[in-house]
């Protein structure tokens, strides 16, 4: 908001329009629920929506391409190439829109996003180092084959996303109190 429009707004408020509530001069706790009380600025909401849409489209393209290749078309060179190109191509707007979201974000939101990305990256690195050992451990234990599904959680991408999301929620909560 420019200084002029802020002044105009104040004049409107002071010029007779009835205020709906007395302006609070004490500490205003943002909320008590986990994360969902975070109110982003208009720019953050707009950029966040755009980034979410592109990431969703990117994931849909990846899952479709992956499913086609997995469903018996592994030998198809054109399909594998198409899947690779499409997934790489749709990554560009997704990453760029997230980058724009972070660059233009409210500075506390940016700090939270950067800390969450750092935590997520660290979790991914740790998980990738632990993956062979966990695989060897679970391979030797007598157990139903389904238990081996736990290995999917050692795929670096899974802890990366989980830790990133948890960190965003925790930090939003911490800064909102």
């Amino acid at each position: 908001m420019t200084e002029r429009s802020a002044d105009l707004r104040m004049n409107r408020i002071q010029g007779g329009l009835k205020m709906t509530r007395e302006p609070s001069t004490v500490e205003e706790p943002i909320g008590k629920s986990w994360g969902c009380s975070w109110r982003a600025t208009a720019t953050d909401r707009r950029n966040g929506r755009t980034a979410n849409v592109w990431v969703f489209v990117w994931m849909a393209v990846f899952m479709t391409a992956n499913s086609v290749v997995q469903l018996g078309h592994e030998d198809s060179f054109p399909l594998a190439t198409l899947g690779l190109v499409a997934t790489a191509l749709f990554a560009i707007p997704a990453v760029r829109s997230y980058g724009r979201f972070v660059r233009q974000a409210d500075e506390l939101t940016r700090v939270i996003q950067l800390q969450a990305m750092a935590a997520g990256f660290a979790a991914g690195v740790v998980a990738s180092f632990l993956e062979p050992f966990v695989g060897a451990l679970f391979g030797q234990l007598p157990q139903p084959a389904a238990m081996l599904d736990v290995l999917h959680f050692m795929n670096p991408l899974v802890p990366m996303i989980l830790v990133y999301s948890a960190t965003v929620t925790i930090l939003q909560r911490r800064y909102s109190r």
Binding site: M1, I30, L108, Y175, S176
Partner: peptide, 27 residues
């Protein structure tokens, strides 16, 4: 000035959480 946190946030172009976090010395 009898301003709310939201009003200060709007004037500064940041979120209300940012103003709140600065006031409480968390940020």
């Amino acid at each position: 000035r009898r301003w709310s946190q939201a009003e200060v946030a709007e004037r500064l172009g940041v979120s209300r959480q940012t103003v709140n976090a600065i006031e409480t010395s968390r940020y």
